[in-house]
Design a protein around this nucleic acid. Structure first.
Lengths: 191, 191, 191, 191
DNA sequence: GATGAATGAGCCTTCATTCAT
DNA sequence: TATGAATGAAGGCTCATTCAT
């Protein structure tokens, strides 16, 4: 089954590059690192990518594609009962964590090493829009600056992926519990 | 006034390096960039620093020193009345933002480009300890994982510095309001 | 008709290489260029030639063979009447142009990209010898340095091939007229 | 007098490059060859030139500047007596040879390695214009295609520079004699 | 007879670093 | 205190060449 051997080599390189970019950043990652990790030579790299820059761009595009696919898949929101809000949010957060955690390297690259923050903005926008909608429905406090809250949320998610998901220290569900607890109700005891 | 002209040159270089490291990261920043921004030559750089690595380390040390000084200064916490908790927290957050925002570049470098996350851990530890204490006092919910919450908090602060303080888009007080609102009470309406 | 399919592929490669060597020179021509033009793969190249160097050498040998064949064919010179000299020369020049123009790429490669100028020398020698003979017969001025004139002549021919024959701008006969006019009688009006 | 040491290094590199480009062509010449010949390291090359391409372009510009300066200097043509025509032409050719022979490497590079033949065209144009003028004055035969003759002339000059001037085998004056003899009166004996 | 895949060697270029002045 | 000039070491990229299929 030595079919499309080339395609496999390309994937190996892509994967190796993603991990290295995530760990060391774009500049600190050498082509020689990438191909060594992929078990190939430097020349092989240029069989599949035209430059270091290009593989990086492809990585972002790849992430964006998956992202759009994911958020489209989430459209089944439907209307939910007030008392189910918390559970629903918790599940949504878990879904997001699972999605991003599936390709933690790609996620980190996309959110950190990205010059114009385009991908970041896309995600924040979606979250903020969703929150605003819930404000209109009386679910979310009107004092909340949804744009701001969206950014805060994404920062937390981003950090979590790196700190807990990539290390395997906590499961997505545990994390979703804590995140939803934090963001939905805050740390203070109700008096 | 040829008074410590050298000291000034060193500061210029240090400042330029901090900004560039913050904007482009350690690897993408070239000595030539730094000295160009400082209005000096490359050779001058080595009059004050032994290597690119060294100036970076000094930057972290510098940050750590200030950090310790700051947290020592905060020891006046004393005991506060329950009804003042929120205001007190809000003020503390504003203080933190003001402190970190004073050297946003340094902050970004210290928190992001830092290999072992030592500085990050120090801060998180302090926050978590404080929160745990407040759990014992019945102020903070016991379900909260304080370590986790501390990390989340720092991630948000870090992002805010970069996103709002460095751009001058919002003041530290405005930000402190939103952050405390978010973390203390969450986004949900009390029903 | 799978008759000597290999032979045809070899020819395609050879032809492509000749054109590219002529246009861009040996070094600037890549094996990948050659096979792309020939509609084959790089590996196929090595089915027919052992190296880039080798195909180049074969090109020169090829040219030399044809050259010798051509000059042997011209041996029928015989003795001609003085009044026919000009016409005879003009025809000879036209013949040379036609011969070299048949494979302009090969010609250019052979005359330009050739390290030791061997082929060039061969041609110049023949021309010079012929001219010297005509000096003895009183047809050509004795002040003429035949070696020098031969070289000048070949330079002109070489340039003409590239400039007019390869572009199809003038016919060999037109060119032969101008060349013989120039070399036989010069540009000055007889006073 | 270690004044402008850099300027001197730049010149050394430029000169070395000119010789190598002339001998081996642009592609076959390596930066390492150039700097080795100049007694410097590769990094030094990039202190003075941004790329291999750039030094090549500068070489062409350099040649063009000198060329324009030269042809401007030749404007003193004035009107000459018919019987002086030959001598005048001979001198002019000698001047051209001396000029081009002063920088034979630059000349070869400019005329051979030049993609669009711009410099070549400039020279040919000048020669052709001059010849056309002499046609109107009745000095040059009207059957002569001056454009064509100009190209032929330049090809010969170019070859001579390489073959005789660069090797020092003949002087510019000797060569001017032969060239003018050839082009003005042709090789045939007047009968 | 032909190809897809891969490679070794080498070239162009960059950059942190040094040193004589 | 500062600089102009230079360099060693490495990194990105290319290209002729090989080989299993």
């Amino acid at each position: 089954m030595a079919r499309n051997k080339g395609e496999e080599s390309k994937k190996k390189i892509f994967q190796a590059a993603a991990e290295l970019f995530a760990h060391k950043g774009f500049h600190a990652t050498k082509i020689s690192d990438i191909v060594a990790k992929a078990g190939l030579t430097q020349a092989a790299f240029y069989l599949y990518f035209n430059s270091k820059e290009e593989i990086f761009e492809q990585m972002l595009e790849d992430f964006e594609k998956q992202l759009i696919h994911f958020s489209d898949a989430g459209k089944k929101v439907a209307d939910i009962q007030p008392e189910q809000v918390k559970d629903h949010v918790r599940e949504t957060i878990a879904d997001i964590l699972k999605f991003l955690g599936k390709n933690p390297h790609l996620t980190k690259v996309a959110l950190r090493e990205n010059k114009d923050d385009r991908l970041r903005s896309i995600i924040v926008e979606k979250i903020a829009a969703n929150m605003s909608n819930n404000q209109r429905l009386g679910i979310v406090k009107t004092e909340i600056d949804t744009q701001f809250a969206g950014e805060a949320f994404l920062s937390v998610i981003e950090h979590i992926i790196e700190r807990y998901v990539m290390t395997g220290e906590k499961t997505e569900n545990e994390l979703a519990d804590q995140v939803s607890l934090l963001f939905l109700e805050g740390i203070l005891n109700k008096n």
